[in-house]
Write a protein that binds this DNA or RNA. Structure first.
Lengths: 197, 197
DNA sequence: TCTATTATGGCACATATGTGTCATAATAGA
DNA sequence: TCTATTATGACACATATGTGCCATAATAGA
């Protein structure tokens, strides 16, 4: 098993995911999680499957997407290192996911089982608070994304994405970014061309 | 004071807002909240003010909106009876709000002070969980709204709104609904006309 | 009731975005 | 390395949505 030598990896990741946890709590958790590596362009989850684990991206980049009624892939989110990738809804309810999750880069993932999270709720009183704050933080982000559709046109959404995600810009394709912004690839190309002038 | 005779009103509202609370906890909370009534088209909160209270709409209808750089009002949300109206972000951080909140109907509001919520977190262990579940539920709703922009055109967003909010449809104006859907009033008129055929 | 204000529907025209297609560039895998 | 596959930029044309305007309907307040 890798567990022995990968312990430091686990530990660093967990400090990010569960900042309020004590060493005792951390070492309990470490026995219950597992690590996995996936090369570029591999599926982590298919729509219809139940997402058993909350994914913490230690290294690499994931894409969460869905397929619309025309068969087009619509990118819902990118999940970079030090962030969680999940179909929140389906994971919480342990329902089949509406989404696909794939790697865009070679990735090192920490898998946090649903059952462990439930265990933590009852076992550690801090965990409810950690999760509440986490949910509230995600709430803010989604609110901002909703407002980007209400207030901004496609060009402004693109410019906002660029300024807030300089690091991602060269790691994702135009095609994926366009669908994330809610426009067609051709439209994004046109916008980029107009901006270069 | 109204407190004596309005107690049943408080109590019913609180059962909705805090389903897990015991009678003891409820009676503590009742001493700390206050009720207010506002007639139609009155401002509850102006942008720039700090939202001191979480608003529970016992009766009536509120609208949360913002003003864009062209001076147009953009409706962020409607808050009907038995729901919360808040600029979540600003309320949690007690920062000046970006939004305006106004009544669209005569309304009866339960004001839950920020300080009471903080007190509840430390005093009642259930409250963290209640709030986490509440935040997670809101998260799902916002995710669905994001996806409505990614997957649906204006006509489909309108039809979805109609089917999910039959009760609201005749209580709000075309103008407000259009800005909520992310389109101009004229576009919504055009869509409605096309659908009637 | 009357009047002023606001909301709505409608239209012509402008702009933004989508569609379908192609050639070329970049990339992955044998 | 070579070849097949996929991504990108480009364009003409189609459709969706925005803009500015007007007339009328609905509403609020004196």
């Amino acid at each position: 098993m890798y567990k022995e030598n990968l312990m430091p990896v686990y530990y660093n990741a967990l400090k990010n995911a569960f900042p309020d946890f004590s060493k005792d709590e951390m070492s309990f958790i470490i026995t219950k999680i597992n690590i996995s590596t996936l090369n570029t362009k591999k599926m982590y989850l298919m729509a219809g499957e139940i997402q058993q684990n909350l994914i913490f991206v230690y290294q690499g980049l994931l894409r969460i997407f869905s397929i619309n009624d025309k068969g087009e892939e619509i990118t819902i989110a990118f999940a970079r290192e030090n962030s969680l990738a999940a179909d929140y809804d389906s994971f919480i309810k342990q329902n089949p996911s509406k989404y696909y999750i794939e790697t865009l880069e070679d990735s090192l993932l920490i898998n946090i089982p649903f059952s462990l999270i439930q265990e933590c709720y009852s076992k550690y009183k801090n965990f409810e608070k950690t999760s509440r704050l986490n949910a509230e933080a995600h709430l803010s982000k989604r609110q901002r994304r909703i407002e980007s559709f209400l207030f901004n046109n496609a060009e402004q959404r693109y410019l906002n994405f660029v300024s807030e995600n300089k690091d991602l810009l060269h790691r994702i394709s135009i095609t994926h970014l366009a669908s994330f912004l809610g426009i067609k690839r051709q439209t994004l190309t046109r916008i980029r061309k107009a901006l270069n002038l």
